[in-house]
């Protein structure tokens, strides 16, 4: 609240009815969400869901076909260069000059964000410390491991201390040690007040880092909220996975046999994998196996998964995130 009692706009990012078409193909279909200052927001979705297109519109790289984007109070569509000063972007690719050293890369990108002189040098030293590459700063990027390159990629985005850091799959293809380092770095930046928008394939990363999560599929934001709120969409139920043998060809017969145990929307059978959601999986497990066996199919393995983001995603989209 201001002194006059007006409500302050604390949103760092506001996206309204965002659309993007490439020819006849509509990649993003009216996505709306907002991210508050200091918040960490995760954007989840499988390949081709529209995550990167959405991110590219927010950063000002793609002009949207329709909709509005505001960073702070700046209209990104009308004044992208102004907004870009406040944003740090970690692209999915290693967007660095491989033949230059880490320090040279950081110096270059720092200058692109209006840093110079002692302030730039100081910032580079700090960032090298944060990403843990002080001792390798003079080495060429092309000599680095995938994880180290990813860390420099992040370093180049935080040199100018942006108010909002957008990270597009920053941990793709790296070793667990580097991943942990990156996650800790992001957590630390967020705790220092930096707004984070994080897209990833890895549910556990999003669960670990993000206060709120948006699930995007086929260009639409199909759910958003805190992890707790999302869990409620599946009624806080565990997921039961039953792997069936090759006799389980009549899917209709099997689902009919399980009638009464689950709602139709909570039951999926695809490629010999039966997935069902239930609050007390242990209580219905033996009943499920009995009924399935009566149809002539045999259960070769059973797995019960506690309610998590993966289950939520599967429940909402009908497919696994890595499909």
């Amino acid at each position: 609240m201001t002194k006059n009692g007006e409500v302050m706009n604390v949103n760092m990012l506001t996206v309204q009815d965002l659309r993007k078409s490439f020819g006849q193909f509509e990649a993003v279909k009216g996505v709306s969400f907002s991210v508050e200052k200091g918040e960490s927001f995760g954007l989840l979705g499988p390949n081709g869901a529209g995550k990167s297109t959405t991110i590219n519109m927010i950063t000002g790289l793609y002009p949207p076909t329709a909709g509005t984007i505001q960073v702070k109070d700046i209209d990104v569509i009308k004044n992208a260069k102004q907004a870009q000063k406040w944003i740090g972007v970690v692209p999915q690719e290693i967007a660095l000059y491989q033949e230059m050293s880490a320090r040279e890369n950081l110096k270059f990108w720092g200058r692109m964000y209006n840093l110079s002189g002692k302030a730039l040098e100081k910032s580079i030293d700090e960032v090298l410390e944060i990403i843990g590459l002080t001792d390798r700063s003079k080495d060429k990027v092309e000599t680095f491991s995938g994880g180290m390159k990813r860390r420099v990629n992040i370093g180049a985005a935080i040199l100018h201390r942006p108010d909002m850091l957008i990270m597009d799959e920053p941990t793709v293809g790296i070793d667990p040690q580097s991943r942990n380092h990156i996650l800790e770095t992001v957590k630390r930046l967020n705790s220092e007040g930096m707004t984070i928008i994080y897209t990833s394939h890895y549910m556990e990363e999003v669960e670990y880092l993000c206060e709120r999560i948006g699930i995007i599929d086929h260009g639409e934001l199909i759910a958003s909220g805190t992890l707790k709120e999302l869990r409620e969409t599946i009624g806080d139920r565990s997921r039961i996975n039953l792997t069936l043998d090759s006799n389980a060809t009549d899917t209709g017969k099997i689902t009919a046999a399980l009638e009464g145990l689950f709602l139709e929307k909570d039951l999926q059978l695809q490629d010999y994998l039966l997935t069902a959601f239930h609050k007390e999986p242990q209580s219905v497990l033996s009943e499920i196996i009995q009924r399935v066996t009566k149809t002539g199919a045999r259960v070769s393995s059973v797995d019960i998964v506690e309610p998590n983001l993966e289950s939520i995603f599967l429940h909402l989209t009908g497919r696994s995130l890595r499909d």
Binding site: G60, Q84, P91
Partner: peptide
Amino acid sequence: IGGTWGRLMISPAT
């Protein structure tokens, strides 16, 4: 393809 061009485009440089 490498991404540096895109990164330049989303920097404050015109």
